[in-house]
Design a protein around this nucleic acid. Structure first.
Length: 497
RNA sequence: GGCCCUAUCGACUAAGGGUUCAGGUCGCCACCCUCUCAAGGUGGAAAUACGAGUUCGAAUCUCGUUAGGGCUACCA
């Protein structure tokens, strides 16, 4: 969800400015490769209607070779591997980065040691002079290690005691002293791959990215990114950092577990991890993508007006980074349902009818679109999801198999058994058996005969649908039609005695 | 621990120093409508974290405290 929201804001911002939304896969961590994740991302964005202008082809596959429409291919960082080393070396040549030969074990030991004495180990100006790198080792030793070993890295040489002044489109001005930062690894010889920091800056430059809208977790590395653009002498894009989505109850950021625990999806689409663990999705839970996207857009942004329902195009028109809120937003599953309910109501009846047929093929096989449309028009306002409709409307399609005992006990007594055959005679003769006619004639009959209104109406409903709660009698009877109404009455009179 | 971000009803948010005893939406409660249920209509309860300061005036600006979050990896 958080990822989709970030993508959505990027998309809206790009569309509003008449720009392009590019999908790039940042898969530089070979250890954490997850099969199926890339296809999942593309499918999820597609379901949401967030279609990349660049990076993905019409067939839904990531583009690997450059073309007019995809001038910056390939879009998978793992396929851009040869690009990055050059840039890392460029920084070393400029004296803004250096080779580091410390092993992961050595650094781990240093960190553990520092922790034991309640201190923090930071690889920067304060410590790099004592560590094994091209700044401290003799040149011939450096050359030897570069050629003969494969576990070295290129680290950024963080300047000493410098204030980095940054501007964020959402958060405003931020300043950080470089002494609190460390010499981040930029490139790893072991897999010849860059880390996020290098790959991101190089690719954003190469792909002509003008605006970076990403999660708040990247804010601490913004100074590094500023310094990297400066080191390369490149113009930097504008940055905007979005706050996180928080769990509905308690504290902390929204996690996969919260969905399972509280009963709502955290993923746009159902996701099955390589380990076989399943997570439900908004799509499979019956949400309309329009409702999901609308809900996400309003979680951390507002239009400044009281409008809450937006199409994707309307969102693109109304969106602005100035109106993105800075604080984290707790996700509210109830409001998500409300959005879907609103979209269920706005749905064209033809579309809803088709959807309903797919949901309940046996029940609807012999029914006309007119009949189904009449049922749905009456009943859809009671539902949050289309999937609830078949059960909710079953009594229109099938006569009741049994009569609710509590309702029978409450209504099928006193003079009612004597009255109902007379109601049947009325329904057999009334002309036409329309909603308008019944709304007027049925109460009129009840008044005229001095029958108890509630008792007769509820008993009639009980006879029609098996329980005493449901739609208004005039609607119910007119949709059911005379033949079915009389059949159900006869059966109820016979069964209830 | 260090660095950074954030702080208005239960939740999402509006109010950009005076037009606000803080507005809207979801949820909750009551009433109305009514043959029941739902929907709808009307109304209600419900918030500026705390403490200083600036100012004629502070939800709004400043500082501090508290609380929450993020980062602190050869992950993104």
């Amino acid at each position: 969800m958080g990822g989709v929201r970030t993508a959505l804001y990027n998309y809206l911002y790009a569309k509003q400015a008449g720009g392009d939304f590019i999908l790039r896969i940042e898969d530089t961590d070979s250890q954490r490769f997850v099969p199926g994740a890339e296809a999942y991302i593309i499918e999820a964005l597609r379901w949401c209607g967030i279609l990349p202008d660049e990076g993905v082809d019409a067939d839904g596959h990531i583009v690997e070779t450059a073309s007019d429409r995809h001038p910056h291919a390939p879009y998978r960082q793992s396929q851009r591997k040869p690009i990055y080393r050059r840039y890392a070396e460029e920084l070393v040549a400029k004296g803004m980065a250096y080779y580091a030969f410390d092993t992961a074990e050595e650094l781990g030991a240093l960190r553990a040691e520092a922790e034991a004495s309640k201190q923090t180990f930071t690889y920067n100006a304060a410590t790099r002079g004592r560590l094994r790198n091209s700044l401290t080792l003799p040149a011939d030793e450096v050359s030897r290690l570069l050629e003969q070993t494969t576990d070295w890295t290129v680290r950024f040489k963080m300047p000493q005691n410098r204030i980095v002044a940054m501007d964020d489109l959402i958060r405003g001005h931020i300043e950080v002293n470089t002494d609190t930062l460390d010499d981040k690894v930029l490139w790893k010889r072991a897999d010849e791959l860059p880390t996020y920091h290098l790959a991101n800056i190089v690719d954003d430059h190469l792909m002509e990215i003008t605006d970076v809208i990403r999660g708040e977790e990247w804010l601490p590395s913004l100074p590094l990114h500023y310094l990297l653009y400066e080191a390369f002498g490149w113009e930097r894009p504008a940055f905007a950092h979005l706050s996180l989505l928080l769990k509905p109850d308690g504290k902390g950021k929204l996690s996969k577990r919260d969905g399972d625990r509280l009963g709502f999806p955290v993923f746009p689409l159902k996701w099955i991890s390589p380990e076989g663990e399943e997570s439900r999705g908004y799509r499979e839970d019956g949400y309309y993508p329009e409702a999901f996207v609308n809900m996400l857009a309003l979680l951390g942004w507002n239009p400044g007006t009281e409008q809450e329902l937006f199409t994707l195009d309307e969102l693109a028109k109304a969106f602005s980074l100035e109106r993105v809120v800075r604080s984290g937003a707790k996700f509210n599953p109830e409001k998500a349902k409300w959005f879907n309910q609103e979209y269920l109501r706005m749905r064209p009846i033809e579309a809803l009818t088709a959807e309903f047929r797919a949901l309940a093929p046996e029940m609807t096989a012999v029914r006309s679109d007119d009949f189904i449309g009449a049922v749905l028009s009456l009943m859809r306002e009671r539902a949050h999801f289309a999937a609830e409709l078949p059960e909710m409307t079953r009594f229109f399609f099938e006569a009741p198999q049994a009569y609710d005992e509590a309702s029978v006990a409450k209504f099928w007594k006193d003079d009612v058994p004597a009255i109902m055959p007379q109601v049947r005679d009325f329904l057999a003769a009334v002309e036409p058996l329309s909603r308008e006619k019944l709304e007027e004639a049925l109460p009129a009959l009840i008044h005229e005969r001095e029958w108890p209104m509630g008792k007769v109406m509820n008993t009639l409903r009980l006879m029609m649908i098996g329980i005493a709660q449901g739609p208004a009698m005039a609607d119910l009877l007119s949709i059911l039609g005379r033949e079915e109404v009389l059949k159900r009455m006869d059966r109820a009179i016979k069964t209830l005695g």
